[in-house]
Amino acid sequence: METRWLDGDEQRTWRAFLWTTRLLTDALDRQLQREAGMPYTYYMIMATLAEVPGRRMTMTDLATLVYSSLSRLSHAVARLEERGWVRRSPNPDNRRVTFAELTVEGLAVLERAAPAHVAEVRRHLLDPLTGEQVAQLREIMSLLWERLDPTPGRPGPYPEIFGPDV
């Protein structure tokens, strides 16, 4: 098969996407480190747990939702346990299954960190765009997410993100 090289416009689009997503992730990570003492990855794990019933789920399901390997997630959760923000416990019905649960202290930390994090997301991603551009970006990200998700047909980790209006 012959390579379909990127033309000039495609190359500029690719690099703009690549470097912008990198810069955005780095900015969010720096803000969370500075103001909440945690990396972006920890925030996403805690936010995911905060949004599920009982603030508790299996490590396997959590790894799926945060798009992480189980070993990488286990390392991060161990650090969160050391801080008292997350607790792991075995499933009494199946010893091979481990639950991760956001503690009350972890929820409090998350609630303190969230306003500044949301402000940073607004500042770097949403505020520079018009409402129409935000809708277009959501539609584009939805399309790309559906093509990239390793579990075809699975609803998004948060169905309300892409929702029925896309």
Rank of each mutant, 00 (worst) to 15 (best):
P92W: 14
I161D: 00
W145T: 09
G37C: 10
N94L: 06
V86S: 01
D61L: 14
Q31F: 02
L32T: 01
L126H: 12
M38G: 06
D26W: 14
V52F: 02
G153F: 01
T58W: 05
G163Y: 00
V118Q: 10
M141I: 03
L144Q: 06
R112W: 08
E101W: 04
R15M: 13
L62W: 04
T98M: 09
A135W: 12
P152T: 08
E120H: 14
Q136I: 04
P92D: 14
P39H: 13
P164Y: 01
L148A: 02
N94M: 03
E146W: 09
R12S: 07
L107I: 00
A119M: 11
E10L: 14
A135G: 03
L73W: 10
A78S: 14
V134W: 07
V166K: 04
T41C: 09
G106N: 05
T41W: 10
W19L: 14
E160C: 01
A116T: 09
Y42G: 04
P128Y: 06
S89W: 01
P92C: 12
V121M: 14
M46H: 06
L125Q: 08
P53Y: 06
R95P: 01
V52R: 01
R154N: 05
T25W: 13
A16H: 11
F162A: 00
V97M: 11
Q136L: 14
E120D: 13
A76I: 11
A36V: 03
R34C: 02
E2F: 13
R15C: 02
R96D: 07
M1C: 09
S68C: 11
F99K: 02
G54T: 05
P152Y: 11
A100N: 06
V166Q: 08
L102F: 10
Q33G: 03
T21A: 06
A63L: 07
R4S: 11
D26S: 10
P128C: 07
S142E: 06
A119Y: 06
R34S: 07
E2D: 11
D149M: 03
L49P: 00
Y67W: 15
Y43V: 05
S71K: 11
P128R: 12
L49M: 09
I45K: 01
N91G: 01
Y67G: 07
F17H: 10
D61E: 15
Y40W: 15
R154D: 03
W5Q: 12
G84C: 10
I45C: 04
F99Q: 04
R112P: 02
R79I: 09
F17A: 08
D165R: 13
T41V: 14
W5T: 11
P157H: 00
L125E: 03
R4D: 11
V166N: 07
L129H: 11
R87G: 01
Q11I: 09
T151F: 09
E139K: 10
G153Q: 08
M1P: 05
S74M: 03
L24P: 01
S142A: 12
D9K: 15
V86F: 05
T130L: 12
H124F: 08
